[in-house]
């Protein structure tokens, strides 16, 4: 429980820090880079190494590559839909969220079947 609370506090702080950086930079396309900053990973990898060891953290990082690829596809789709159909941002981002799950878990299952 204490570890989860610690992750919550560190994660909240790091994510807020990167989001704030995204607020102050211009142009907006540059500020958008901070939307995909390694905030959760920075908040959690150190704790993972301490509690579970480097090998465990390395396996997490390997899967993170798939999560990042899914994020790239998801964000590109959000951009395309936003430009083409002029739908509200919250509606678009939430409606397309299953794309992240499909690409990341699809990739993970494919990798598991291959290895």
């Amino acid at each position: 429980m204490a570890e989860t609370l610690l992750r919550f506090a560190i994660g909240g702080a790091v994510v807020t820090l990167f989001a704030t950086l995204g607020d102050v930079f211009r142009p907006k396309s540059f500020a958008g880079l901070f939307g995909a900053a390694p905030s959760i990973a920075l908040a959690t990898l150190g704790l993972t190494v301490v509690h579970n060891g480097k090998a465990y953290a390395a396996i997490e990082a390997r899967s993170m590559i798939l999560g990042a690829a899914a994020f790239c596809v998801y964000a590109a789709l959000v951009c395309w839909v936003g430009m083409r159909w002029k739908v509200g941002a919250l509606k678009t981002t939430l409606t397309l969220m299953p794309v992240w799950f499909a690409v990341s878990f699809g990739g993970w299952m494919l990798l598991r079947a291959t290895l």
Partner: peptide, 23 residues
């Protein structure tokens, strides 16, 4: 919001680079 998402999609490629280095 769409322009911000375009930036995030590029940042996500960098995120994959981050993960690859750690792995």
């Amino acid at each position: 919001a769409a322009v911000d998402a375009a930036g995030a999609s590029l940042g996500a490629i960098g995120l994959a680079g981050f993960a690859a280095v750690v792995w």
